[in-house]
């Protein structure tokens, strides 16, 4: 048997989870003490255990929210549907939120999907590309009459997600024990989050169902650790537009539309101060 054929047979047995696959057992030599299915089973079991471990590491709060049985059923379904094609295991878990959205078993659970999206963003923020942040003083390089034409570029770790209401509360509740050990000054820690809940405040069954008025969250990396903050709708809109390359002046008009009667320029200026102070802005230039 050629090497290529042997490797196909071996891989097929691992992917199908069949340690008693006759075709591969026929070419395996007798082990010293164990039987051949037991030894082939080492590879079969290791494959699923390893992939499950990757998902465990990247979605710890989702496991807590769903409970062990449901989370493990999700993991099994994901592994069955997603044999890895990636050289680096780091990104094996990335598609879990989309898998849930596409799966009949999970697509009605908007809260779980939202939590998966949130945890994925935390993971992505952790090892996103580096870039030095600009301070607010950067604006002083431009004369005030140029400000309406200014555009901004943002840190590569910054992600915006729009999820079901209750996702942040679910995350805080699921990670409450972990947060008790963390530095209380850490960005994005439970203590800073408005409406942060104690672990027992919301029983899982009482989490709100999906609502059209969901949550909008920014996730990024601050001081090497992931941070997050819930955004008001107008800040979310402004940040989306700013990330898309819109100028300060254009965004002012959009914010004014959302908040009639307020000074859009002042409101956007507040946002900008916050974005600079959080290290989100890495470039300022006149928008094209």
């Amino acid at each position: 048997m050629k090497l290529a054929e042997l490797q196909s047979l071996f891989q097929s047995a691992v992917l199908t989870g069949d340690a008693e696959d006759a075709a591969i057992l026929d070419v395996i030599a007798a082990p010293r003490d164990a039987d051949r299915p037991t030894m082939m089973g080492v590879y079969v079991n290791a494959y699923r255990l390893r992939l499950a471990e990757f998902l465990d590491e990247d979605y710890p709060a989702l496991r807590v929210m769903l409970g062990d049985d449901d989370f493990e059923a999700l993991v099994e379904a994901y592994i069955d549907a997603n044999p890895s094609r990636l050289r680096n295991a780091r990104w094996y878990t990335t598609r879990l939120p989309e898998f849930m959205q596409e799966s009949e078993n999970w697509n009605a659970n908007a809260l779980a999907i939202g939590l998966a999206l949130f945890e994925r963003a935390l993971t992505d923020a952790y090892d996103a590309a580096d870039a030095p942040a600009h301070g607010i003083e950067t604006l002083a390089e431009f004369s005030p009459q140029d400000w309406p034409r200014l555009g901004f570029t943002f840190h590569p770790s910054l992600r915006l997600i729009e999820v079901a209401a209750g996702v942040l509360d679910a995350y805080v509740a699921a990670t409450a024990d972990e947060h008790e050990d963390e530095d209380e000054e850490a960005p994005g820690s439970a203590e800073e989050d408005e409406g942060a809940l104690d672990e027992d405040d919301i029983p899982i069954e009482d989490y709100p169902p999906y609502a059209s008025d969901g949550e909008t969250i920014a996730i990024w990396r601050a001081d090497l650790d992931p941070a997050y903050r819930q955004l008001d709708p107008d800040e979310y809109l402004a940040l989306c537009e700013a990330m898309a390359g819109q100028s300060f002046g254009d965004i002012c008009q959009l914010v004014a539309f959302q908040n009639e009667g307020q000074s859009a320029t002042e409101r956007l200026a507040q946002f900008l101060v916050t974005w600079f102070s959080e290290g989100l802005v890495i470039g300022v230039a006149e928008a094209k």
Binding site: S8, Y43, A89
Partner: peptide, 16 residues
């Protein structure tokens, strides 16, 4: 080897 046909089993697999 770790896989064939574009797949990766994320394991160190044996050879003849």
């Amino acid at each position: 080897w770790t896989g064939v046909h574009g797949r990766n089993l994320h394991d160190l697999l044996p050879i003849p």
